[in-house]
Design a protein around this nucleic acid. Structure first.
Ligand SMILES: Nc1ccn([C@H]2C[C@H](O)[C@@H](COP(=O)(O)OP(=O)(O)OP(=O)(O)O)O2)c(=O)n1
Length: 732
DNA sequence: CTTGGCCAGGTAA
DNA sequence: TTTACCTGG
C-alpha cells in the first residue's frame, strides 16, 4: 500500500526519465540494420513464436502489442522483425538489458540525486541544480534557447493546433514574470534536455521525460508524449490534469485498489476522489492508504527521490507451464542448479564491481497437487542466510525447496517419492538474493590498520565519490558503478588455466586487503593488486547522512502519517545474520579457501567464477560525474539519526565540517554502509579482536556500545501498532 | 494446473 | 523476522 509522506515545501524539481521501447532499442543498437524497421523483442520463439516483451514504435503502428505471441504479431505485421531474448542455462538472460540500463543511469546521475526506479526508469531530484541555474544563468537571461528544449511540451500552455509552437515554448521558458516555481521548472526543462541529449550521444538511446514538482506528477508527465519527447507539468495545470485523469492511470491504482475505487465508490477520475473525506477513505482502505488517496487527489506526493543507483535484490527464475511442469526431485534440482548458477554469477559481479554482499537467500516456487485436485494450498517461500559460492547456494536452495515441499505436502502424499507419480507438480521456480549491503567502508583506525598507514593521501581516492565514481562498465558487463579498474584486472588474467588462482586473488580483496587477511589467517596468500580501492573514507558516510533529512519543504495542505523507520530492522538483521553470511566466515569456510593450499581442492568447483566474470572484454566506459550528488541539503533525518548508532559521533562531527567540499554518495548507500559497519564488528570473531592492537580494540568497543543499548524510542512501528487497540488486545 | 515470462520494489501482518 | 500479496516494468 502506498504510504503518504510529507510533501516538501519550497518547490522541488523532480524528473522522471523513461527509455523508449527499451529492449527494442538495445537490440537495434546491437543490430543497426533493424533501426527504422518494425521490431519487437520476443522470448522463447518455439511455442507460437514466443511472447513479445517489448515493441518498437514502428510496430505499434500496426497494432502490435506487448504480450502478443510472435505468431500474432506476424499476422498483424508480416514484415516485423522479431529479436529473441538471449538464452543462457536454458532460460532467458536479461543481462544485456540490465547493463544497458546501467549505462543510462550513470549519465542521468550527473545532475542531481538519482533513483533507479526500474531497469529503464529513473527519478531525478534536480532542485539544487535548478536553483543554481536560476541564480546564475536564468532562462530569461539567455539570448537563445537550445532547439531541443523548444520541443518540450508544457502542459496547459495554450497554443494553436494543440501543438506547442517553439515560439510559445520559448516564451514560457524565458518569462521573467513567472513565479518562482515556474522559473525553477523552466530550469528543470533545460537541464533534462541536456541530460537526454547526453544519453543519446553516449548510448544511442532515446528517452522521454517528465518534469514536475513531485515524483507522481513527473511520472505522469513522462508518459504523456513519447517517444523521445519531454513534458512538464506546471503547478497551475495540476488540478486540470487530475480532474480528468482516469483513476486507473494513476500509479498504484492500476490494479485491485483502483478497481475497488471504481466499483465501491463510483470514482472515475482522480479528481473524483476530492469528494471523499480523509476519514472516509481511511475507513474503507486503511489509515495509510486513505491518507495517500486523499493526498494524491490533490496532486500531493512528498515521496523523496532516493539516492540509489543499484538494484536492491537479484533474482533468477523460470516457469514450467502446463505439460512442462516438473514432476521429480531430480528435475527440480537440475533447474534450481541452473538458477543458482546465474544468481551466483550476478552476486559475484556485484561483489567485484560494487563491493556489495547479499545476506539473504530466498526460494519461491509454484506448485499444484496432481492427485488431490483443488487443494488451494500455495507452495511456501523459504529463506535462509546466504552463503557465497555457487555450490553453497545450490545446496542451500535445494534444502529450502525440500523444506517447502514437505510443508506443501503436509501430512500426506509422502508415499510415492521415488516414483513417477510424485503427486505434485512444480510450475515455477525462482531464487533470489536480498539484503544487499556494501562491504566495509570508513577511515577508522581499524581500516587504516588493515590498509597500512600510507595508502590514502588527501587525494580524491578517499572521497566519497570514490565508491561509485569514474566507473568503467564491468568486464562481465554487469551493473556497476565501482572504482575497480577492470583493465587492471583483465591484465591479471593472461591465460585460462590460472583463473582459479586469480579468483582467489580477487577473493582476497574482499573486505580485507591481502596483508590484512594474512594477519587473520597466515595460511592465506593473496595478491595485493587492487587492495587500496576497497576502503572508503568515513567522511563519505557521515556527510551523506545529509541526504536523509526532510527538506523542510512541507506542504501545509498535506495530510501526513508517521513514517516508519527502518533503522531498527537494520540492527536486528545485523545481529541475526551473524555467522553464515559473514565475510570472515566466508573466507574461513573451505569452499572459498585461499590458494596456499590447506584446503581441499574438492572445493575448486565451488569457487566463485570470477575468472568468467573477468573474461569478457570491456566495451564502453561511462563515468559518473563528481558533482553527481552535490545537491544534498543539509542535515539528517531525525528518524535516521536517532538510530544511526553505527557511526561514531566524533566522525559525524568531523563530517559536518568537511561535507561541503566532498562529494556524497547516496543515502541508501550510507545507510547500508552503516549497517555494514555493524555487521563487520559483530561478525568479527572475538579471538581475532583480541589479537588486534589496543587502539583498535577500543574503537571496536566504542562501536559496539551504542548498539547494545536498549531501544530508546519505539521505532519501526506501524500505524496499526500505534493506533489499533484491537491489535493490542489480540496479543494478550 | 490446463503457456504472457522474468523480473524488481513495496506494504502488511 | 519472514512470508504473502500487490503493483509495476
Ligand atoms: N511486462 C513487461 C514490461 C516491460 N518489460 C521490459 C521490456 C521493456 O522494454 C522495458 C521497459 O518497459 P516500459 O514499460 O518502459 O516499456 P518500453 O520501454 O518497452 O516502451 P515505452 O516506450 O512505452 O516506455 O521493460 C518487460 O520485460 N515486461
Amino acid at each position: 500500500m502506498p504510504v503518504a509522506r510529507p510533501d516538501s515545501s519550497g518547490a522541488r524539481i523532480i524528473a522522471h526519465v523513461d527509455l523508449d521501447c527499451f529492449y527494442v532499442q538495445v537490440e537495434q543498437r546491437k543490430q543497426p540494420k533493424l533501426r527504422g524497421l518494425p521490431t519487437a523483442v520476443v522470448q522463447y520463439n518455439e511455442w507460437k513464436g514466443g511472447g513479445l516483451i517489448a515493441v518498437g514504435y514502428e510496430a505499434r503502428n500496426y497494432g502490435v502489442k506487448r504480450s502478443m505471441r510472435g505468431d500474432e504479431a506476424k499476422e498483424v505485421c508480416p514484415q516485423i522483425e522479431l529479436v529473441q531474448v538471449p538464452v543462457a542455462r536454458g532460460k532467458a538472460d536479461l543481462s544485456s538489458y540490465r547493463n544497458a540500463g546501467s549505462e543510462v543511469v550513470s549519465i542521468l546521475a550527473r545532475k542531481g540525486r538519482c533513483e533507479r526506479a526500474s531497469i529503464d526508469e529513473v527519478y531525478l531530484d534536480l532542485t539544487d541544480a535548478a536553483e543554481a541555474m536560476l541564480a546564475q544563468t536564468p532562462p530569461e537571461s539567455l539570448d537563445e534557447v537550445d532547439e531541443e528544449a523548444l520541443k518540450s511540451h508544457i502542459l496547459g500552455l495554450e497554443s494553436k493546433d494543440g501543438n506547442d509552437s517553439k515560439a510559445t515554448v520559448k516564451e514560457w521558458l524565458c518569462r521573467c514574470d513567472a513565479d518562482h516555481r515556474d522559473k525553477l521548472l523552466a530550469c528543470g526543462v533545460l537541464i533534462v534536455t541536456e541530460l537526454r541529449m547526453q544519453v543519446l550521444k553516449e548510448t544511442e538511446f532515446t528517452c522521454s521525460a517528465g518534469i514536475a514538482h513531485n515524483k507522481m506528477l513527473a511520472k505522469l508527465a513522462s508518459g504523456m508524449n513519447k517517444p523521445a519527447q519531454q513534458t512538464t507539468v506546471p503547478f497551475s495545470s495540476v488540478k486540470g490534469l487530475l480532474d480528468s485523469l482516469p483513476i486507473k492511470k494513476m500509479k498504484q491504482l492500476g490494479g485491485k485498489l483502483g478497481t475497488s475505487l471504481q466499483n465501491e465508490l463510483g470514482v472515475t477520475t482522480v479528481g473524483d476522489l476530492l469528494k471523499f473525506s480523509e476519514d472516509k477513505l481511511q475507513e474503507r482502505y486503511g489509515f495509510n492508504t486513505g491518507t495517500w488517496l486523499w493526498n494524491i487527489a490533490r496532486g500531493i506526493s512528498g515521496e523523496e527521490v532516493q539516492a540509489r543507483l543499484l538494484p536492491k535484490s537479484h533474482g533468477s527464475g523460470k516457469s514450467f507451464p502446463g505439460p512442462r511442469a516438473l514432476k521429480t526431485v531430480a528435475s527440480v534440482q537440475h533447474w534450481l542448479n541452473q538458477l543458482c548458477e546465474e544468481l551466483s554469477e550476478r552476486l559475484c559481479s556485484d561483489l567485484e564491481q560494487n563491493k556489495r554482499i547479499a545476506h539473504t537467500l530466498t526460494l519461491h516456487a509454484s506448485a499444484f497437487k496432481s492427485s488431490d485436485s483443488d487443494s488451494r494450498k500455495k507452495f511456501p517461500s523459504k529463506s535462509c542466510p546466504l552463503r557465497y559460492g555457487t555450490a553453497k547456494i545450490q545446496e542451500d536452495t535445494f534444502n529450502l525447496f525440500q523444506a517447502g515441499l514437505r510443508e506443501f505436502l503436509g501430512s500426506f502424499g509422502v508415499k510415492t517419492q521415488g516414483s513417477h507419480y510424485s503427486g505434485w507438480r512444480i510450475t515455477a521456480l525462482s531464487v533470489s538474493a536480498s539484503k544487499i549491503v556494501p562491504v566495509l567502508s570508513g577511515t577508522c583506525s581499524i581500516t587504516k590498520y588493515f590498509n597500512g598507514p600510507d595508502k590514502f593521501g588527501s587525494t580524491s581516492e578517499q572521497l566519497p565519490d570514490n565508491f561509485i565514481d569514474a566507473a568503467p562498465l564491468s568486464p562481465s558487463g554487469s551493473e556497476s558503478y565501482s572504482t575497480l579498474n577492470s583493465t587492471e584486472l583483465q591484465n591479471e588474467l593472461p591465460g585460462e588455466q590460472v583463473w582459479i588462482e586469480h579468483s582467489m586473488a580477487d577473493l582476497g580483496q574482499l573486505e580485507m586487503k591481502a596483508n590484512t587477511w594474512n594477519r587473520l589467517d597466515p595460511s592465506c596468500s593473496i595478491s595485493k593488486q587492487t587492495s587500496g580501492q576497497w576502503f572508503h573514507s568515513g567522511t563519505e558516510s557521515s556527510s551523506s547522512l545529509d541526504q536523509n533529512k526532510p527538506q523542510n519543504r512541507d506542504d501545509s495542505r498535506m495530510r501526513s502519517v508517521p513514517i516508519k523507520s527502518n533503522q531498527q530492522e537494520h540492527k536486528k538483521s545485523a545481529l541475526k545474520d551473524k555467522g553464515a553470511s559473514s565475510i570472515l566466515n566466508f573466507f574461513k569456510s573451505g569452499d572459498l579457501s585461499c590458494s596456499s593450499g590447506n584446503h581441499d581442492t574438492e572445493h575448486a568447483e565451488t569457487l566463485l567464477p570470477l575468472g568468467d566474470c573477468l573474461s569478457e572484454s570491456n566495451k564502453k566506459q561511462v563515468n559518473i560525474p563528481k558533482e553527481r550528488l552535490d545537491n544534498s541539503t543539509g542535515d539528517c533525518l531525525s528518524e535516521s539519526n536517532q538510530n544511526q548508532v553505527n557511526i561514531p559521533k566524533e566522525r559525524l562531527a568531523e563530517a559536518a565540517t568537511t561535507s561541503t567540499t566532498t562529494d556524497r554518495c547516496g543515502s541508501d548507500q550510507i545507510q547500508q554502509r552503516s549497517e555494514s559497519w555493524k555487521l563487520r564488528i559483530e561478525e568479527i570473531d572475538p579471538s581475532v579482536i583480541d589479537e588486534l592492537p589496543k587502539e583498535i580494540q577500543d574503537e571496536i568497543q566504542a562501536w559496539l556500545r551504542p548498539s547494545k543499548q536498549p531501544h530508546r524510542v519505539k521505532r519501526g512501528f506501524t500505524i496499526a501498532d500505534y493506533f489499533s487497540p484491537s491489535k493490542n488486545r489480540l496479543e494478550q
